[in-house]
């Protein structure tokens, strides 16, 4: 294998009069790459084109050197974790991964062994025989990742994989993606949160308004983004205790307490996320049940970058 693992030239996709992706020129090297952009930027469309789920309206995309659409040679080398949260009804986690493996083309024994390995890897072994309908959002996310991992793909496309995960789950996912990168997998991970991308890779592609805005090292991008204040919403039953912990921090611009919700405005999102992360893992700290980074802020940052 030489050069880019994914190459797009003049890649465009439109749906009627809506241009979802416009003239994208991009080469992605092996390793872990983050696809960063606000909702509606074109990240998922780009991923679906890379998977052959869409036919390009113009231009082309090559994955591992070939067009992916209806191409079994390429599809057997790609693992995909979709953003959508849909499964077959009345199926356990193990059955789901097993049947996906069988559809990949594995024999019964291989499919069983690969399903068990992948489920183990996403730490769902104890619940693998439970119906998916009974899984939490985070567990459903993990079982989707397991089906993507199970087929020993060369390229993993993970579409917003952190969605719905609690802080602990996010940490595990960060660790998993980093490990996959270290093991020589190529991973393209999409997110609208810079912090998430930053935790797993140095390489980032910024997508906005259906176009690639920039690509390069995260640090360079972050320097641009950090000039802009960011808003983080934290779900916690101990709002005031958590607010008190942040009150003295230099990067905090404002704190707003709501009902089981703390809204934090910061000029250094990474510092805030680091702090939140440590608190989430600290048993003595106020309990954090969810973290949301307002997309409006990212949108404004992208507007700022576009000028």
């Amino acid at each position: 294998m030489s050069g880019a693992i994914l190459e797009a030239k003049g890649l465009s996709k439109w749906f009627g009069e809506i241009v979802a992706l416009n003239n994208v020129e991009l080469e992605i090297a092996p390793g872990v790459t983050g696809l960063l952009g606000p909702n509606g930027a074109g990240k998922s469309t780009f991923m679906k084109l890379a998977l052959g789920l869409y036919q390009p309206s113009r231009g082309y995309v090559r994955v591992l050197g070939e067009s992916p659409r209806n191409n079994p040679r390429i599809l057997e080398r790609i693992g995909y974790c979709p953003e959508i949260d849909h499964f077959y009804e009345n199926m356990t986690g193990f059955e789901f991964v097993y049947h996906m493996n069988r559809h990949w083309g594995m024999g019964r024994k291989d499919a069983t062994a690969a399903a068990e390995r992948a489920i183990e890897r996403v730490q769902l072994r104890e619940r693998m025989d439970d119906p998916i309908d009974e899984y939490s959002k985070g567990m459903r996310q993990r079982i989707k990742i397991a089906q993507a991992l199970a087929c020993e793909a060369d390229l993993l496309l993970l579409d917003e994989p952190m969605t719905g995960l609690d802080p602990q789950g996010r940490e595990e996912m960060f660790h998993l993606v980093r490990t996959l990168g270290d093991e020589g997998y190529s991973v393209i991970i999409s997110s609208h949160i810079l912090y998430e991308v930053e935790r797993v890779t140095d390489n980032v592609v910024l997508i906005y308004g259906g176009a690639v805005l920039a690509s390069g090292r995260v640090a360079e991008i972050r320097d641009l983004l950090d000039d802009h204040p960011r808003t983080i919403r934290i779900d916690t039953p101990e709002v005031r205790a958590l607010a008190a912990l942040f009150a003295g921090d230099d990067h905090v611009l404002s704190l707003e307490c709501g009902e089981e919700k703390l809204t934090l405005r910061t000029r250094d999102a990474s510092a805030a996320f680091d702090r939140l992360n440590r608190l989430a893992l600290d048993a003595d700290a106020p309990r954090i049940t969810g973290i949301t980074c307002s997309d409006d802020d990212l949108q404004s940052v992208f507007d700022y970058l576009v000028g």
Binding site: L51, G52, L53, N70, P72, R73, L75, E76, I78, Y80, P82, I84, H86, F87, Y88, M100, H103, W104, G105, Q147
Partner: peptide, 17 residues
């Protein structure tokens, strides 16, 4: 139900499916 995406991203021959 959008589960078609799992099949479309597998190397299963569409006709066999």
């Amino acid at each position: 139900s959008n589960t078609l995406v799992y099949m479309q991203t597998r190397p299963t021959p569409r006709s066999a499916w």
